[in-house]
Design a protein around this nucleic acid. Structure first.
Lengths: 242, 242
DNA sequence: ACAAAAGTGTTTTAACTACACCCATGG
DNA sequence: CCATGGGTGTAGTTAAAACACTTTTGT
């Protein structure tokens, strides 16, 4: 597949640098009422991998930070502002793209369901269930898989789950987020207790009316900064969006 | 839209891509006998930041993976092979370097004490205590601080501690690693139990002779892959070294 | 015999699990 | 008044922390 001329040519040129973003949102299945993780993909309109679905992304602009470039990916594909944005990993394998050496710094983002509902879909932008996103262009299958792993880890320890929801939410909604990410049911009683102690949530005096059952209390997230761990003391870049 | 003028313009403003590596090793203080974390730094022999100490690194070669470039950093500065190598973070702030836009993909590595003792020191390569590495070039102070945080996190959960040591080690040596990284003393009795259950270590039938006290048993690490979490299923690059 | 580190045992405490039970609402 | 999800209580299990205690070496 690679002629020797191709290899020498590759050695000569500096690697291209691109930013891609994995955007996660929660959607509630109308049928079962269960929460699921979705992500938007864009259809490639050029070679290589023409016609395949791929992560939103593009070259890094000369005068924007990595984080800004990732946020721009969101805006340009879905008109959304992220509620959470964190660097995922830098992928730089030699065989990622056939024609040129490509290094991609990948971010992952969370958006709220109300935002995701507003997001535009078009011929070349479509939302997929994370579990059904396969056959993507380049190595994007693996990138999505790794992003899901990271999400899994972050939700257990950190305070990421809230960023899937609005500023007011019920504990059952929050539990739905955990269950969708972890992929297993959680005991409602224990889940409630675990959050009451230690986590940064506070009960409001409001309840959610209109349901079929007893109106659940609404809570809000009080953790000041929706912080992403990586650049602990803001290394001049990549400050996560609150 | 893609005229040659545009291409050259893009090339002109395209960020430079470099790989740097934070190399950690353990050294036992001759006086107190306590373990401490050290790292090698190289003196800059050009502007900018001429004369300051900096992390080993350099531009990414056209035909090497990111991981390979990081391993090359180790070889070129210290003649060492890493026992552990993991991607840390990609730093890409606009103000990282004065003259040009610079994106650095930073790795961190662990080496064994016997390797570190063999590592050459020179006029322009010197080892520093991690706690005393300050005033470095560029944003390397922050990068080192973040690498220490990551090390801290990895040692609590993962199986990273063993890579500071040789293939045979006493539990007290291993506890020394934990104490040096975590910065607090640990109960020897509980530490022993915690490792016996769950962690991948096995007792050998050998003991370490020559000490002043009762000879401690030697253990070895049986975890097959010294794995780093990031690319869970080897995204065509960056496989951590065993 | 003594000091000092290796190694074992035991008690206490906290956290998580599982599950029984009561409460409030719409139909 | 019944079904359904919201919310509380409680016993059993498991893991970790604190610390007393025994063992083995060199001097």
């Amino acid at each position: 597949m690679y002629g020797s001329a191709n290899v020498t040519e590759r050695q000569a040129q500096a690697p291209a640098l691109a930013i891609s973003t994995v955007i996660f949102a929660l959607r509630t299945d109308p049928g079962s009422g269960r929460s699921e993780i979705w992500l938007p993909l864009v259809r490639r309109i050029r070679q290589p991998h023409l016609g395949k679905w791929a992560l939103p992304g593009g070259p890094l602009g000369g005068s924007e930070s990595l984080q800004d470039a990732a946020a721009r990916n969101l805006r340009e594909t879905t008109d959304l502002e992220p509620t959470y944005l964190e660097q995922l990993y830098a992928f730089g394998g030699l065989d990622r793209a056939a024609t040129q050496r490509l290094v991609s710094i990948v971010y992952w983002a969370l958006v709220r369901p109300d935002q995701a509902d507003l997001a535009r879909e078009s011929e070349n932008v479509r939302w997929f269930r994370a579990s059904e996103a396969a056959g993507l262009a380049f190595d994007h299958d693996e990138i999505v898989a790794y992003a899901l792993e990271r999400l899994h880890g972050r939700i257990e320890h950190g305070s990421v789950a809230y960023h899937f929801l609005g500023d007011r939410f019920t504990l059952t909604q929050l539990r739905g987020v955990f269950e969708a990410v972890l992929g297993r049911p959680l005991d409602p009683a224990n889940f409630r207790r675990q959050l009451r102690s230690a986590r940064d949530i506070a009960a409001t005096d409001e309840v959610l009316q209109g349901g079929r059952n007893r109106p659940p209390r609404l809570y809000r997230y009080t953790g000041q900064n929706a912080q992403a761990p990586p650049p602990a003391r803001t290394p001049a870049d990549d400050r996560p969006t609150s």
